[in-house]
Amino acid sequence: MNTLSKISFVATLIIASCLASTVDAQTRRGISLDALTPAGMQRVDVALPFHEDGTTALGFATQGEERPTLFIELLVASSASNATEAMDARITTISGQVAELEGIGERAVGDAQYVLFTRDNLFFVVRGANATEVSRSVDQLAARAPVGRPVVRSISVARPAQLPTGTAIPLEVVGAESARITADGGALCRATRAGYVLQRREGQPEAYSLSIVWVDALGRVGRTTR
């Protein structure tokens, strides 16, 4: 190889390395939940995670139906390595085996009805009849998702000033696409057709706390305790 070729080769390596670094460092701020809705379907359920680095599960039903038949779970992790870790942890809970899949995300395993994959700091699980096809569509969306640190904004939840016995007090949550509120101690939180309400638990100590988990429009999950 002559000198010019060597220089070109080295330059190519350097450029490739820089590009790789740029790709490794690329994180997504999130992904639009609305954009994840497949054509002809509607989102009918949002299941928020129960633990850190758990996925938010979106349930979709055919237009006009209520029971979901397609689920897209997602985790907007803080980094690509965390997304990979979450995927590996999820795989350990599968008592059978899942095969590697090509052409979906940066790494994908699964089968025609159950796919796990990552794209940057995004981890997805797609469950349903046409999971591989849906996964490819989701992956394309993920690849176009806005770049940046996934920072979830805080929400507003006001504890009621008083909580009389036998009365349900409305609890307003502002700023979340969907939220789950759990009360511990002397109160019980309940979802109603008009939103969340809080009710004192009779016979329990007065003190109570609220644990709130929410997801925003870009799939980022926040947690707080009030």
């Binding site: 633990h51 758990g54 809970t93 599968i94 059978g96 089968d111 009805q113």
Partner: peptide, 11 residues
Amino acid sequence: ERGASFYTSYP
């Protein structure tokens, strides 16, 4: 198909 969990999760 695979023995996956649908209602239980582990941190």
